[in-house]
Design a protein around this nucleic acid. Structure first.
Lengths: 218, 218
DNA sequence: TCATAAGAAATGTGATCACAAACCCGCGCC
DNA sequence: GGCGCGGGTTTGTGATCACATTTCTTATGA
């Protein structure tokens, strides 16, 4: 006898496929998965305690966003980006992020800058602890905290799909580099914000974005 | 008795969910669907002669790209964009398209410009015939033909998701305006291409993009 | 030792079903 | 006349299954 043990409490929960989607999306964006990592419907289903159907919807959604790659036979893996593709995605970041930062600049008050400061300290700690996932997470949170103030949800949405595509690559990059020194540009970003200097902010964001990814080029 | 009449010829065909996806995507992007149009799983399935499963995957994929909107109860419709959202999407186009055009400029040879000229004539015919779908289709093809030369697949992919989101809105716009005169900027784009003038091309693309969408603002 | 073919396991695809929630329409009450 | 409240219908969700294909494994042969 199979109990209908769905729908537990009193308030409706998000659908299973959405829960799976969110979990996987975070894993990909934060670099918890290496490039080329294979994902199977039954494996994902087992991991989240659901059947193949919600797992399939989550994977379909993520591949549509570029977070995952679909092979010719329908197999799903995390993307292994070519150098050209990495370069192009970095250029897209260099196009979108200064624009978002500039739009946020007018609305950025002191409390926001303080919050970014705190996130940046967590970022520095992650570097000291050699924790790539936490480094990526705090780095993205630093940027997103600023861009949320731009009030440009569509542009931020596009940018997040770019971050998604770069997730596994960033993991591979930062575990290889094993950097021990904090990225210098976050300080420049904060200074430009405090000074209200649009041109300086755009430049600092652009260099912060391109700097991190350019190490892979050879 | 149910025949296993799948897998027809000798070479494997694309999966059913992909066929459904492509069909719907084209309908949305070319403005064949009005904003707020509701789509149901069983309806789509019947329309394409498949079950709910492939229809569901196609809709999930399209909503992930922003081509369709998901209501809180899981219902799927074509998006009804607010004026703010339309404005923002136009600004994204104004950011991406000059960049793509500029990248294509170096690689644009005469045959490409001739091809764009032909497409532009088809576009003018569509205006004369008051055919909004054909107008949108040829207009996008005009731009895409240029941007393909940029060899920036990721950036073009992002742009196409923006076009997708604007599809139903563009239909509503151009059926309301009933414009009878060709957009003047396509000629400027072609002239800038022939002259190899980067600044002029960027400007022409930007104004062409913002011009078309700004009529909705009140 | 390595390539290769055959068998076994794993995987994506699509159909079908049960079910709960949402939606719609009309009746009746104030 | 307007408003809420039924009940029937529609709709999305998730599970399960059959099946073809791909992938992996292993044993065989040169």
């Amino acid at each position: 006898m199979i109990e209908t043990l769905n729908r537990q409490t009193t308030i409706s929960e998000p659908p299973a496929h959405d829960r799976v989607y969110r979990g996987l999306r975070q894993q990909v964006m934060h670099g918890e998965l290496a490039p080329g990592q294979a994902l199977t419907l039954r494996g994902i289903g087992k991991q989240y305690g659901v059947s193949m159907t919600p797992a399939r919807e989550a994977l379909r959604r993520l591949t549509a966003e570029g977070a995952l790659t679909l092979s010719a036979s329908g197999r799903v893996t995390t993307p292994e980006l070519s150098n050209d593709r990495i370069e192009e995605l970095a250029q897209i970041r260099a196009l979108l992020e200064p624009e978002l930062g500039s739009r946020a600049l007018r609305r950025a008050h002191l409390a926001l800058i303080d919050r970014m400061e705190v996130i940046n300290e967590a970022n520095a700690r992650a570097i000291h602890l050699q924790d790539p996932v936490e480094y990526i997470r705090t780095n993205l949170e630093f940027h997103r905290t600023l861009y949320l103030r731009a009030q440009s949800p569509a542009m931020l949405g596009l940018l997040e799909t770019v971050w998604l595509q770069l997730g596994p690559t960033m993991r591979a990059l930062y575990t290889k580099l094993r950097r021990t020194t904090a990225p210098p540009h976050h300080r420049l970003i904060l200074e430009a914000l405090r000074a209200g200097d649009d041109a300086a902010l755009r430049l600092a964001l652009r260099t912060d974005v391109t700097q991190g990814l350019r190490h892979l080029q050879g």
